[in-house]
Design a protein around this nucleic acid. Sequence first.
DNA 1: TGTTTACTCTATTAAAAAGATAGGGTAATA
DNA 2: TATTACCCTATCTTTTTAATAGAGTAAACA
Lengths: 139, 139
Amino acid sequence: MLSKKTKYGLKALTYLAGQMDNKPVQIAEIAQHENISQKFLESILLSLRKTGFLGSKKGKGGGYYLIKNPKEILMTDVMRILEGPIAMVPCVSLNFYEKCSDCPDEKTCSVHALMLKVRDSALVVYRNNTLADLVIDRS
Amino acid sequence: MLSKKTKYGLKALTYLAGQMDNKPVQIAEIAQHENISQKFLESILLSLRKTGFLGSKKGKGGGYYLIKNPKEILMTDVMRILEGPIAMVPCVSLNFYEKCSDCPDEKTCSVHALMLKVRDSALVVYRNNTLADLVIDRS
DNA sequence: TGTTTACTCTATTAAAAAGATAGGGTAATA
DNA sequence: TATTACCCTATCTTTTTAATAGAGTAAACA
């Protein structure tokens, strides 16, 4: 299941990418427009800023804005920041690999083999979709 | 993240499919061989029996056994029983559809559009893999 | 017929994660 | 210098997951 954090994060990014200019947008505006708890959204936008997707400006007229071109923001990167591993089990994760404690051998594990295929298919989707694609899909 | 329930269920099914004959196998044997909590496995196997994947036999020489041919057990069906929806959001689920309470319009929702693609890619994998494929992969 | 075996079912609980909220702090702007 | 709006930490509730306990019941076999 996709977490609310990821869902909200994607919606916020899409909202920012859909702005005509790239002027700062207040958290309150995004939260209201996308039906998101403002406080929760705060922490999400903060993590997106710390990971280099967003810039922020304080004081009057402040808010968040995109740092990169939406066409250059890959869903693989966004998903990994917001949702964590794309793989469904750590033993097939590229960026968050971890050995399964209960599994004696990955090479003979049926779950491992299946989940590898699932991960690859998800990666194809995320690699072929940028934030710009999400905005276009709205029209 | 894949739940332990699903992981254990898949391993148990694979173990049963890997038996030479189709005689009942005790829960204890499966649990021991696959490093699974026996009591937890009990409930998993029970749900697989109630949904028509397994048969069971009580008393001495009893246990669980596959009802269908492994080649006819699709991963789509197994995953839906064990893990639930294949979709990451209910609004793109085929078998567990539910409208998102926070989303005014699915047609203009960027998350909806992206998750639809992810679901479709996962479905391709699950539809093209049967329990028999999992067993073969072990060799 | 009685004992053993092994599945069946309900209930409880512990741990973890998700989601939401509160409130004070700080930098920038007008 | 007052206001705006982001920044940060802490707390709390709810839900889900995972595991455990224990009594019940059907089948097999001597």
